[in-house]
Design a protein around this nucleic acid. Structure first.
Lengths: 120, 120
DNA sequence: TGCTTATATAAGGTGCGACGTATATTGTCG
DNA sequence: CGACAATATACGTCGCACCTTATATAAGCA
């Protein structure tokens, strides 16, 4: 199953967002996400299972609690998938930088609004 | 509709992959993707519509052809969404570098596989 | 041991997204 | 204009992902 299939679900994305700042118990996640999306504890638990089964999260038992944490490996793969497209926006940024430089140069060379003379 | 929902579909991902290397006509895309996934021309056309409607692709008419191109803006958003997680793997790479350095040091100091003794 | 809390699994219902077939639209060429 | 080519839209069907309710598992505690 491809990583994007997992991230396609908003509930799972939200869970990962919560995990981004550190470990959370299944209960905490069920409470927060459950109330935000209006879904039940089992529903959240099922999403946690999907995240586990696909390597997006790891679990650690602490007593009766299950503490979840992000495993970023699949996210890294998503990041890799994006590689071929990065040039599209970095390129645009470069063009913007060039454009800005050009604008600056022209302003320096002949800017009537500051202190240059129009026709010496 | 969230960007990840669009990327969740393998056909749409494939289309974007093909567009990464430049413009393609709807017909080319339908031929390649259609045969790869075993789906019809209308099916591909519907996916193209989804990509259009959600800003992942732009179209330009050339005669009776429709030439599609990537619009990377939504992908840039996906890239942004990944930001909070980047530290996980960059951090891991740092740790790996550290680990490798440590391993190198230990090997230099006392490496049993080359000339050390197991039980002196 | 029995009761409670935390979490997961089972089983079943439902909505929606992706597909195919058929057809409409638009452009080209003779 | 009429025929053909390229592409899009209409519409009905179906599978599956996600949900709910009910229940199982397992740990903590009186």
């Amino acid at each position: 199953m491809h990583a994007f299939d997992i991230l396609g679900d908003p509930v799972r994305r939200r869970i990962l967002e919560l995990l981004a700042s550190g470990e959370r118990s299944a209960g905490e996640l069920a409470a927060v996400v459950g109330s935000e999306f209006g879904i039940s504890q089992p529903a959240v638990s099922q999403h946690l299972k999907v995240l586990r089964d696909n390597g997006f999260a790891t679990v650690r038992a602490e007593g009766t609690r299950r503490l979840y944490a992000v495993d970023a490996e699949p996210l890294r793969q998503v990041d890799e998938w994006l590689d071929p497209y990065r040039r599209f926006w970095t390129q645009r940024l470069d063009a913007l930088a060039t454009e800005l430089a050009r604008g600056r140069r022209e302003r320096r060379d002949a800017d009537p609004t500051t202190n240059g003379k129009e026709h010496p």
